[in-house]
Every structure is written in C-alpha cells, then in structure tokens.
Design a protein around this nucleic acid. Structure first.
Lengths: 202, 202
DNA sequence: ACCATTATTGACATAACCGTCAAACTTGAC
DNA sequence: GTCAAGTTTGACGGTTATGTCAATAATGGT
C-alpha cells in the first residue's frame, strides 16, 4: 500500500451519518459533510466518487446499527414484551437529539433521493431486513401470545406503522403519542385473554 | 381596485400544487414554479412574499380537496365499507401520476421544511382534521360493526398507518401491498363475527 | 381623459452548490 | 534514500438558487 488514506474512515462515516440523519440527503451539502468530518471536499470526492456513493456507504453503517439494536430488542420470551421493546427502540432512536433527528430511511424515502435506484434499493433492503426480523420473531409466537394475524402479514403491518410513527413524530413532536399508538397496535394484534392465560406464574 | 392581478390565481395555485406535490417543497425552485404557472418569478414574489408563503397558499388548496374526498369516502353505512373506501381513496391519491406523486403532507413532514413553524402547523392542521373526520365516523359505529378500539384511539392509529403506507409506496411502488396492509389493519380493527351478524339482509 | 395604485418585468446582487483538476504531499515498498 | 502510487489541497468553472428593485405597464375610480 503506497498512497494511504489520511483520515479515519469509520469516524468520518459516523460524523457524516449524524449530518445526513439530521438534515436528510438532499439538504446536506458536500461542504457541510467536509466541515463535519474534517475531510476536505476534494478528498471525499476522491474517496467516494460523489454524494450518492458516500451516502450509500454511510447508510450501510446506519443499517447495521439500526438492525442490530432492533434484533436485540425482539429477543424476549413473551411476544407482547418483544413488540413493546421493539417499538420502544424505534421511538427512542427517532426522538434522540435536539431537535430530534427522526428516521434516516424515512426521510430518504420521502425525498426525491428515492428516485435514484441504488438509494431506493438500499432503503428497501433495510425495510426488507426489518420485516424479516419481525417475521422471524412473530413466527415463533406461542399460542399463549394470542397473535391474531399471520406472521408475515403482521410483520408488514408493524413495519408500515413504524414508518407512520416517524412522520407523526415530525409533525407533533409528542413522544407519548407515538408510544400510545404503538400500544394500540400491539393491543389489536395480540389477544389479551390468551396473553393472560400464558402469564409468568404458570 | 386599481392594480389588478393579471393571472388566474386559482389556476396558478393548482399548477403550483402539482409541482410541489411531485417534487416536494425543498426541491421545487421558484423558477420552476414560474415556468409551470406561467407567472414570472417577480410576480410570484410580489403576490406571495416568498416560497414559504406561496407554499402555504398552495397547501390550503391541497388540504381542502384532500379532506373533501376523504370525507365523502367515509360516508357509508357499514364501517367496514367506510374504512375500505377511505384507504382506497388514500392509496389512489398517492399512486396517481407517473411517476406516482405520493403524498404532499408526508413529503413535507419528512423534509427540513417542517422546522418552519407555520408549515409545521399547516401539516398538523391537516392531520388533525383527518383524525377528526375518522373519529367522527368511528364514533357512529354500530355494535354490529365490531369496532375493537375506542374511536379516538382507532382514528389516530389509522391516520398513523396512512402515513406509513405513503412511505412504503415510495420504497416498494406496489399498490397491491398497500391495499393488503390497509386490509390487515381493518381486519384487526373490526371483529368479523360482529360484522357477519350485522349483514345487509337483516 | 386622467391619475393613483398596483402588478409585471427583466436585470441585478449574492450566495450556494457540484464536480474537476493540476500541483503538492505522504507513505510503504524496495 | 528513492520511487511509484494514491491522497490531499485549494482553486476554478459552471450552474442554480433566493430575494430585491427600478422601470414599465395595466387598470378602475373619478
């Protein structure tokens, strides 16, 4: 290796992620990315080609972290707890920061950046994995969990609702409301009587 | 009246709406608005002040139309039919156009335009009215409709899901999937047995 | 017919953006 | 220590954006 990268790529990508997450793809300029990362614009172009390619690198970091957290959140014996913990994780992630940062994939999906096929595929990939994560957990539901929908259908419904929750957060900035909406879906999704009969004392 | 507006304001606002709807607030320039409406940039500034104020005017047109359609869609005797017709209306609206135009309020909510307080209030106003519309219809539910949630809670859940559906549309561009997700929520929300016992032959 | 008032027009000022590039620099390999 | 290869740098060019303004045009009231 002769010409070696001068900046810490992992750190730079993290800082770029913070910026993209806060402002969205379109509204983030290369100049801002350069300032935030401490890497000059020219170097960024040299290293990644263009803003879209840099974004895909950053999005990969985001995707990995996001899914890792949610995977862990679902790892609870009772489905009710797993779903509550899942939504808690989602809500906490989007309400972090001041002003709250929201959700990067949702901001991206709603912006014109989504017409770029490679970006669309990246976002879709994340949502597909998210759906798979949920589907896997839901498929392991016990009769006592009282799941009232096929796992696949339920997974898609949950993924879709999380996207909606993100938008509601942007407009109302009321974390309590988000959690209440999540609870409402969980209540509909799981039969309470079945849940009670599968209590922790049995 | 001495100096009178030369252009047809209603028509100009409609054309501006099409543009904002397609591209979103941030990505739409005053030059594009001028070209689309046939009104010169300077005139737009003179008439509305700045892009934000013009957007609010346009958003008002959007809001009126959107809510009028949805109000009509909910006017059906059986709640199940009303909700299906409601979601059909929402999905049809966002999948219109080529490429599909999506949802203006959601695009706006997800963009940085939402930090502008007057724009945030406009979007919130629309969602509040939407929630009120649904809440009103749900409050008139019959026992035979089998509504499994308090009307207010159900209304918020539905509003939130519609926002999520918009995002899913952007990513997957699969109208069928949107309708299936809507049907899944309706199925959860309404008790089928109650529905059957309240059939149209009684 | 005139005039006051407003709308329209096109140019101007300013700033931001993206992407490129030649020159200078840095570094590991030999 | 020298060299080849890749990186960094700062400047350049071209494009696009917002908002302003003085000059011009249009109109309803009188």
């Amino acid at each position: 290796m002769v010409g070696v990268r001068q900046f810490d790529e992992a750190e730079a990508l993290r800082k770029a992620l913070t910026l993209f997450w806060t402002k969205g793809f379109d509204e983030t300029s290369m100049q801002e990315l350069a300032s935030a990362t401490g890497v000059q614009r020219g170097s960024l172009y040299n290293a990644y080609g263009d803003k879209g390619a840099l974004f895909l690198k950053v999005f990969e970091v985001y995707r990995r972290d996001f899914l890792r957290q949610l995977r862990a959140s679902l790892d609870r014996p009772k489905l009710h707890d797993a779903l509550q913990s899942f939504f808690d994780c989602v809500v906490t992630s989007m309400t972090t920061g001041n002003p709250t940062r929201g959700c990067l994939s949702t901001k991206t999906a709603a912006s014109t950046a989504i017409v770029d096929e490679s970006i669309r595929e990246a976002v879709q990939g994340l949502l597909d994995e998210l759906e798979g994560l949920l589907g896997g957990r839901l498929a392991r539901a016990q009769p006592s969990d009282g799941l009232r929908l096929a796992p696949g259908e339920a997974a898609r419904l949950i993924v879709t609702l999380t996207r909606g929750i993100v938008i509601i957060e942007r407009v109302y900035q009321d974390e309590q409301r988000l959690r209440a909406t999540a609870d409402a879906l969980i209540a509909l999704l799981l039969d309470d009587r079945a849940l009670a009969s599968g209590g922790d004392r049995a």
